[in-house]
């Protein structure tokens, strides 16, 4: 937590320099979770993955400020992925040094583009789904149980009857809630995917 805070503060200063932290914040919210996930899939620990993602964003900010980023020159996603892969390789090397110190030989280079790109797609989908369900939670009334029902069904793999019993509802109520939430989620997912598509 503390390490994370420290890194984040450094990053924020960078964002602040370019005068519009808010724009960067939404950018951050959209891409950092994906990059952390990608780095995890490329073999880093949670903490190392967070570092790699932060550093990637910091590099992006810097290059952006130096006007090196040019929309026409390539998609945002491959731009970020290129930086991220270099960062992940950096973490590999650091790990290799640690392992060597422990007497273990470690071989690793820059992760290949294909693997990284697939990981991106998976993580992007995952991030979008989480954002979608957050969005749904956000617009629900405090007393509305539908999202909770959906989560009990989805995450905990429980049967409708089981959920109904616990919440004192009928199975029919549970089905209705599930269908309503699924329908809404599908719409929200499409909307968010549209935002990403427009950018990448």
């Amino acid at each position: 937590m503390n390490d994370l805070t420290r890194t984040t503060t450094a990053l924020l200063k960078g964002l602040h320099d370019v005068e519009n932290a808010e724009a960067w914040a939404s950018f951050y919210g959209r891409y950092v979770p994906i990059m952390i996930g990608v780095a995890r899939r490329l073999g880093l620990s949670e903490a190392d993955a967070q570092d790699a993602a932060q550093e990637t964003l910091a590099t992006f900010v810097k290059e952006y400020k130096e006007n090196k980023y040019d929309r026409d020159r390539g998609r945002l996603r491959s731009w970020l992925l290129t930086i991220l892969r270099t960062r992940v390789a950096g973490q590999y090397r650091a790990r290799a040094v640690r392992k060597e110190q422990q007497g273990v030989t470690f071989v690793g280079g820059v992760p290949d583009e294909r693997t990284a790109s697939d990981a991106w797609d998976t993580e992007r989908r995952r991030t979008i789904l989480l954002q979608a369900i957050d969005e749904l939670r956000k617009v629900s009334k405090t007393s509305d149980q539908s999202v909770q029902i959906f989560e009990m069904l989805a995450r905990d793999n429980r049967s409708a009857q089981d959920v109904a019993d616990e919440l004192g509802l009928t199975a029919q109520d549970v089905y209705r809630a599930k269908s309503r939430v699924t329908q809404r989620l599908r719409e929200v997912v499409v909307k968010i995917e549209g935002v990403y598509d427009a950018e990448e």
């Binding site: 503060t9 960067w24 914040a25 919210g29």
Partner: peptide, 11 residues
């Protein structure tokens, strides 16, 4: 600065 990914909106 609470947690990764929580930047969305908050900032």
């Amino acid at each position: 600065t609470t947690k990764t990914g929580e930047f969305l909106g908050t900032l």
